[in-house]
């Protein structure tokens, strides 16, 4: 299938802005609407646009599979640190009387990890579909 030249041009212009917007949504999840899942989905659409630019480029799928698995384990570990610091599992690992700015650090870290995990998962889904559809 031949991609139109106009679509490739517009995709090249739009690609960095979409990546920037995805990271903004992900990292600012505790201040503005959005969060890990939404930012990850937007990052996945950016990768989808890059398929229009270079359709023949083969990506290393095994690396993405490993990345997603390890991200899930990291999320589990980060969310269960609080068992040792606070005494209850699956909550913020910082002590309960620390300042509010420090507490939001936990939300930023977890949002970033969830964003990477969701974006790699969605990229894997449609890139396996594209490989199959060739």
């Amino acid at each position: 299938m031949k991609t139109s030249q106009i679509l490739i041009c517009i995709s090249r212009v739009l690609f960095p802005f979409i990546v920037l917007y995805g990271f903004y949504i992900t990292i600012n999840g505790h201040l503005t609407p959005g969060g890990g899942f939404q930012g990850g989905a937007i990052l996945a659409t950016a990768v989808l646009l890059s398929y229009f630019i270079q359709p023949e480029k083969i990506r290393n799928l095994n690396l993405l599979i490993k990345l997603e698995k390890y991200m899930f384990i990291v999320i589990l570990i980060v969310s269960s640190i609080s068992l040792f610091t606070r005494g209850e599992i699956f909550t913020n690992f910082l002590p309960i009387n620390s300042s509010i700015n420090l507490k939001s650090l936990f939300l930023t870290i977890l949002n970033l990890f969830i964003g990477i995990k969701v974006s790699t998962g969605l990229v894997l889904v449609f890139s396996t579909f594209i490989e199959e559809g060739k």
């Binding site: 299938m1 959005g34 939404q38 996945a44 969605l122 889904v125 559809g133």
Partner: peptide, 24 residues
């Protein structure tokens, strides 16, 4: 607005792509 962001990205970009590959 949280749901709207997720719906725009997944419902109107990724799901139609998967369907288009399936019908091609």
């Amino acid at each position: 607005p949280d749901l709207a962001l997720a719906e725009v990205a997944i419902g109107s970009a990724i799901t139609p792509l998967i369907y288009i590959i399936a019908i091609s």
